[in-house]
Write a protein that binds this DNA or RNA. Structure first.
Lengths: 194, 194
DNA sequence: CCAGTTTTGTACCAATCACTCCAAAAGGAG
DNA sequence: CTCCTTTTGGAGTGATTGGTACAAAACTGG
């Protein structure tokens, strides 16, 4: 039987994810990746094949964590509007407690645009999933009377998604908490049924 | 008297700006910069000193153009709310006619965060100026009755600024026009006096 | 304890990175 | 024309890039 690994693959992946998250794809060297994962050069390549593939796996891992977190937040909401309010609040919270790192997906979109087909496809899939979940919130909110019926659920979803991106970017550039809270407040109020 | 230059410095700067805009700072090599400016290696370094300084000048140039464009858009507005509506519409228009490039400042924030003090300061200054101009619009709109008085001008400015960033990011990831229009519509409606 | 398999560390690879050096070229002022 | 300055192209700088080669190490099933 083979020699066993001396590290936990998920932990290493998480280290790489954090490095890419902080500095972006291009600015993160393979040496940075060794340091961030705690692995030697050989182990990195033996496990993750290449920088590009490691990045895709890190992005994938990030997205999975994001989906999980969002689901947890939405679960404890009282109604549709509250769900969206909680979501925006949790974004702000997360930024404050984790040092204004922004969002890996947002950073990736900004860095790559649509230049890389594989990454574009992965981002598109995540965006679609996020939008679907937000649209479902909107539909629920319209049914329970908390969210305006003047807009299509799809459009509301796009608006909230855009607001989340905006908040993530605000945080990354170092905006103050009150400013971010104000943005979230106005966004939520815009969707409230009146 | 010295030998004169064979190129226009502003044109060269614009070429460099476009390269950084499309690919980001790290992914743009000095060779890319030569191609984008049309200059030889020596001329690039003779004129712009270093990649880092060239980037700062490109960012500066981009910001100046942006300020000029925004001023032109705001000038022809009927009232405060219309100004904000026109601003968001012009962002969408600009993205569609210029190939969904997003915004250099947004991309720069995503790529650098607050890691580089000089760039952070420049972005902060631009953000402050943009916010001030937006807050003035909000104040005007509150005075002429087009914008809600339930919010502070400062907060409205932050909200609009965040929405612009959100739209820019949407466009860069390739979102459809109707989705962007919906976001802008909801944002404008959120600020309307009712 | 041995055979078999994989991981690991080290040394190494060509290519590219940002950048520099320098001589030749190109003008204008006298 | 000559002098003086600056620009220009091309070759070259060391350092770093992403990625490999390979042998020693490490573990387990037999």
């Amino acid at each position: 039987m083979p020699r066993p690994r001396e590290f936990d693959e998920t932990e290493a992946l998480e280290g790489a994810m954090n490095a890419f998250w902080a500095r972006g794809y291009e600015a993160t060297s393979t040496q940075d990746l060794c340091a961030a994962t705690g692995l030697g050069r050989s182990s990195v390549y033996n496990t993750f094949t290449s920088k590009e593939i490691l990045f895709r796996r890190a992005l994938e891992h990030y997205i999975r964590l994001g989906v999980r977190n969002r689901a947890a937040v939405l679960e404890e909401a009282d109604d549709g509007l509250d769900a969206i309010h909680r979501l925006l609040t949790s974004v702000i919270d997360d930024e404050l407690t984790h040092g204004r790192r922004g969002c890996l997906v947002v950073n990736t979109v900004a860095e790559f645009g649509t230049a890389d087909p594989e990454i574009t496809a992965r981002v598109e899939a995540d965006t679609a999933a996020h939008l679907a979940s937000l649209a479902e919130c909107a539909r629920l909110g319209q049914a329970d009377g908390s969210i305006t019926r003047d807009r299509e659920p799809r459009d509301i979803a796009e608006f909230v998604h855009s607001t989340v991106s905006g908040l993530r970017l605000m945080s990354r550039r170092g905006a103050e908490l009150p400013a971010m809270t104000a943005v979230a407040d106005i966004a939520v109020a815009a969707l409230a049924r009146r």
